[in-house]
């Protein structure tokens, strides 16, 4: 096992990928809890598709992929947030609209420039070789920014996630914090997209949160547990992809699915067991 890890980390590209991947999966897991609970999961998915379009255009223009995609995806995040808050337009339909159009634009741009080749496959399903040294530096810096922002605004994020109306009524600027969540999500998705692939990156946001909600009962424990699950699943996924030469992104997702099922079973078993122990919960009335 130790030998295997030494062997793996003798490849520089793998070290880079693992560092960025760990940071990104940490960010994604933390934000994911809030996104899932706010019913914003589809925004994460939509953003990754917008990211695909932006990446394709960046490549066509020979520009640095991250510097082009980040502003585009951040803009899309604000737009999607606006749409889902506006009850007149159906939010989910609008997200589907934006994500499919972005994919279409991306595919057209790619086929006009480099032609449909392995690049497209890499964009869609991720490649562990995608990270250059400059990318790694930018990714590390941005992930640290995302983590710090999340920690600083943790209490506010909890408040606007649990009860936005109440937060707003008591003077918490919930619109601002919703935008912050969208902003941080956009950055995280762009950073993780090339390794995980546009099709798979949203799993990094959604799975750890859902998995930890099977067994944890409090927001803080759900958040911490989700972070651990995400990091561990990422690491196991990378090792497996190295051992069996499977695609990295897909391997990580499969591990996440496995963990989700495991915790779901554990959660169900525990509820059943507890229910049998305590047949009824009596309401204690104040006398």
């Amino acid at each position: 096992m130790i030998n295997l890890l030494f062997e793996m980390f003798s490849y520089n590209f793998l070290v880079r990928a693992v560092i960025v991947g760990l940071l990104v999966s940490l960010c994604a897991a933390l934000l994911g809890v809030s996104l899932v609970l706010k019913r914003y999961s589809m925004i994460g998915d939509g953003l990754s598709h917008v990211g695909f379009g932006a990446l394709a255009i960046a490549t066509a223009m020979n520009a640095a992929p991250l510097t082009v995609s980040i502003p585009v995806v951040v803009f899309a995040a604000f737009l999607l947030l606006r749409i889902s808050e506006n009850s007149k337009i159906k939010g989910d339909a609008a997200i589907a609209l934006i994500s499919t159009s972005s994919i279409a634009i991306g595919v057209i741009v790619i086929s006009l420039t480099t032609g449909m080749n392995t690049d497209v496959c890499n964009y869609l399903f991720g490649s562990i070789l995608a990270m250059s040294t400059a990318d790694v530096k930018l990714s590390i810096a941005l992930s640290i920014v995302v983590l710090l922002m999340f920690l600083l605004f943790y209490n506010k994020i909890f408040a606007v996630t649990f009860d936005e109306t109440y937060a707003r009524a008591t003077g918490v600027k919930s619109g601002l914090y919703n935008m912050l969540i969208a902003f941080l999500t956009a950055i995280t998705i762009v950073l993780g997209m090339r390794m995980m692939g546009a099709m798979l990156i949203s799993s990094l946001v959604i799975f750890p949160a859902l998995s930890s909600m099977r067994v944890c009962k409090r927001f803080k424990t759900v958040t911490i547990c989700s972070a651990f699950i995400s990091v561990i699943c990422f690491f196991i996924g990378v090792v497996i992809s190295y051992l069996y030469a499977t695609p990295t992104g897909a391997s990580i997702v499969i591990i996440n699915v496995f963990v989700f099922l495991l915790l779901w079973l554990a959660g169900t078993a525990r509820t059943r067991f507890l229910e049998r122990k305590k047949p009824a919960i009596f309401e204690r009335s104040v006398s």
């Binding site: 605004f153 209490n155 909890f158 408040a159 649990f162 937060a167 008591t170 009962k217 409090r218 927001f219």
Partner: peptide
């Protein structure tokens, strides 16, 4: 959404103090 929200009762009560915190994290 609250019907299936994983939050501790204490966490919920404490969030009532948030309005008076202002910008303090």
């Amino acid at each position: 959404a609250q019907k299936d929200f994983p939050a501790g009762a204490y966490e919920v009560v404490l969030s009532g103090r948030l309005g008076s915190r202002g910008i303090l994290p």
